[in-house]
Design a protein around this nucleic acid. Sequence first.
DNA 1: TTTGTAAGAGCAAACGTTTGCTCAAAATCG
DNA 2: CGATTTTGAGCAAACGTTTGCTCTTACAAA
Lengths: 336, 336
Amino acid sequence: MPITLKELAAKAGVHPSTVSRIVNDDPRLRVSPKTRARVKDLLKKTGYRPDGMARGLKLRQSFVLGVLVPDVLNPLFAAIFRGVEDAALEEGYTVILSSTDGHEDREREILLTLQSRMIDGMVVASASLRDPSVRYLRTHGIPHVLVNRYSDMKDYFVGTDDRIGAKLATEHLLAMGHKRIAHLAGSPRFSTAVNRRKGYEEALTAAGIEPDPALVAETSLAAGGGVMATHRLLDTRKPPTAVVAVNDVAAVGAYDAAEQMGLRIPHDLAITGYNDIPLAARLRPGLTTIHVPAQSIGRAAARMLLEQMGAGPHETKRVVLPPELIIRGSTDQGRL
Amino acid sequence: MPITLKELAAKAGVHPSTVSRIVNDDPRLRVSPKTRARVKDLLKKTGYRPDGMARGLKLRQSFVLGVLVPDVLNPLFAAIFRGVEDAALEEGYTVILSSTDGHEDREREILLTLQSRMIDGMVVASASLRDPSVRYLRTHGIPHVLVNRYSDMKDYFVGTDDRIGAKLATEHLLAMGHKRIAHLAGSPRFSTAVNRRKGYEEALTAAGIEPDPALVAETSLAAGGGVMATHRLLDTRKPPTAVVAVNDVAAVGAYDAAEQMGLRIPHDLAITGYNDIPLAARLRPGLTTIHVPAQSIGRAAARMLLEQMGAGPHETKRVVLPPELIIRGSTDQGRL
DNA sequence: TTTGTAAGAGCAAACGTTTGCTCAAAATCG
DNA sequence: CGATTTTGAGCAAACGTTTGCTCTTACAAA
């Protein structure tokens, strides 16, 4: 139904190649002002748009980017996506979004789409350590940028320093006088979880406290994972007075567990989160957490990806942003 | 870099067309078991995938769907998208997501992409009344389904009954003994806002209360819009004892305003929302709201779209789901 | 006037598929 | 055994662009 280049050329009485050169502002174009005007006029009038498929076939690129996230329902990843989307739009790219749910076959699906050449590059926010999908991207030479989590140190990456972030949170709790500080850990499959645990332990050690494995519980990904893990931590002879959660969602679980056990926050149990999702500020008391500028990270990732795809020299390989501690009522009675 | 059909055919010693027919399980295919086996084997070995661009050019379809939302950062729209994504994936489609922010040019961008034929159909969650973009889809015969909001009654649509929903919320407040019930209204550009206001007014009228325009304030889209509108409602000689908010985000603004004015919820001010975003259950007190099964709506919309695109007879034109009232502490002291 | 060159625009191949058609050989039938 | 159908697979056009090359005409220089 839409008009084609050939039809338009016929209407204008010129050869298709001429129209093509006019449309694309071919630098080596030599065309008389008269013809150019006539064709340009017709372009406006017909609202001609080159066929993306034909163009993509010839040019071997689609101007479509792919974004892989664990779950777009998680506000952190929604924000990352939004950043990518904004930066991509500015450069005339559109974005395919896929939630993997950590499920292998979903991830494979999108990679196959990719292999079919309909995607020019990928932003991956779902990487696990030694992620096979990331390897695939690498071995196939497909432009990609990892975000938030990394697979190993070999890829383009944008994120925050998880070790420092968790260290900040733990140091804050130490400064508030806590001695027994527990950790709601994430799966060791993710760089974020590993590094945050490392930061937590480093802060303890630096304060002369031996990290106690009994004070670390791994949260499952399922809903309520944080609740159960917190119960495990608190149902002991010498329960902790504070808990460093690997992320805000786990921290919310800790809130629930505390409520169920009749513990008051922060008096009986102080809690820190990670990511500073919008919900964090809405909890009562507010959740002390590490702010992660998700949308900016998404933007930066997209720009890095586009730069990588472009002809120019590749500027940066890893951008690691400093994390920022946001203190709220969950650790500080003064801010209730 | 990926292998092409022609190359694969050469390797197998057959004609490209034969390979194509085998790949696509051409029903009219007649090929000897021997050749078939040889080719299939090679397909596996090489991991051949047809080039999406070439295929799209020939077949005139991309197997890509577009989703238009106001903002993916809003959990309601993230959920709708997730539903679309899941249903689409099951049918081998991928999904492009675009946040319009209500901004015209962003919307135009995506429509142009669409016009370039790289999208087979659209799910639109951002429709305003008499939306020009929706008209465009209609006049150009592009398959589309409207979600949540509608433009007029002429398009395929999936959503809930906003009038009934708001009526339920208002009736609940009446049942709790409230007489002066205000309304945080949305922009009259949206069907949701118009219908919810209608439901609010209907419930009042049915209870013998004349709707009072002074008790209706329109919230702006900007952050804090709900706060300011609530202040306007409360800073009067006879302030309302309850407020029906057009959605949960506005209701959160009402929470903030109440807090700033030292009003306790629900004792001094009862509040209802709409949509039941995850945050609603997390607020203290919990927000009474109308549950909207966003993800299911997204799924249904995608299926309706695919059905519409398929050859088969089009089954349903409008699916309107019944809304469900979720009572929490913001209206009921018994549930604090 | 001859030659050279530049401007303006057309030619045709190529990108990787799909598919209606043709065609030879083999199988079936009377 | 000749005629007809079936089987198996190749041929080539088409989808809508892009782009290196060629060709014609006009114009300037020698």
